[in-house]
C-alpha cells in the first residue's frame, strides 16, 4: 500500500521511524537539488538537506491533517537555504564561486555546454530571483505554490521569475557572443 506524504507525516508524528525514512527517501533528491542550485556547493547543500529534515522532524507536531506536506517541506528548505547564504562570509562567497568554477564532484554528471553556462549564470542571479527561478523551472512548481512557499504575493513571484529568466537569457547570450 502506498501512503500519501501527509499520511506518512502523521505516522512519523506518532513515532513511526520507517514512515519518516520514506519521506526522506521521497524528497531528498528534490530538496538537495533546490539547495545545490541555490547554494552552488555540494557540502553546503548536503548540510542544508540534513538540517531541513531535522527541522521537519522537530516541527512534526505542528503538522496536521489539513496541511499539505510538499509546500511545507519546501518552505523550510527555502528558509534554511537562505540562512546558509546569510551566514556566509564574504571570503567564503569567493571561495564557493571558485569551487563551482572548478566543478564539483557531486554534480559531475555530464552537462551540455548550455547547461554548464546556465548552472553558472543561475548562481550569479540575485538571490530572490534565483530561488523563484529554481522553483519554477527546475522544480516546475505552479506559481501559486511558489507564492505559498516563498510567502510572497503571486504577482511578486511572477515578476521575480520573469526578471530572473530574462537575466539568464541575456547572460547566456553574452557567453555565446
Amino acid at each position: 500500500m502506498v501512503f500519501t506524504d501527509e499520511q506518512l507525516a502523521i505516522k512519523s508524528q506518532q513515532g513511526d521511524k520507517q514512515a519518516f525514512e520514506e519521506l526522506i527517501k521521497r524528497y531528498q533528491k528534490p530538496v538537495f537539488t533546490i539547495c545545490y542550485r541555490y547554494l552552488g556547493n555540494s557540502q553546503d547543500a548536503l548540510d542544508a538537506v540534513q538540517e531541513t529534515f531535522i527541522r521537519i522532524y522537530n516541527k512534526l507536531a505542528l503538522f496536521d491533517a489539513n496541511n499539505t506536506f510538499r509546500p511545507w517541506l519546501y518552505k523550510i528548505t527555502v528558509n534554511i537555504a537562505k540562512d546558509f547564504i546569510k551566514k556566509r562570509k564574504p571570503w567564503e562567497e569567493l571561495d564557493f564561486s571558485l569551487k563551482s568554477e572548478l566543478g564539483d564532484p557531486q554534480a559531475n554528471i555530464e552537462l551540455t555546454q548550455v547547461q554548464e553556462q546556465i548552472k553558472k549564470a543561475l548562481l550569479k542571479l540575485p538571490e530572490k530571483y534565483r530561488m523563484a527561478v529554481i522553483l519554477r523551472h527546475i522544480k516546475e512548481l505552479e506559481y501559486q505554490e511558489i507564492a505559498n512557499v516563498l510567502n510572497l504575493p503571486l504577482n511578486t513571484v511572477k515578476t521575480h521569475v520573469r526578471r530572473g529568466r530574462d537575466i539568464l537569457r541575456i547572460q547566456l547570450k553574452e557567453v555565446e557572443l
Partner: peptide, 17 residues
C-alpha cells in the same frame, strides 16, 4: 534558457545522507 533549466539533472545527495 528554459529548456536548459528544465533539463538540469536532479541531483542525488548520496546514500549516506
Amino acid at each position: 534558457t528554459i529548456y536548459g533549466l528544465n533539463n538540469l539533472p536532479e541531483l542525488d545527495p548520496g546514500e549516506a545522507l
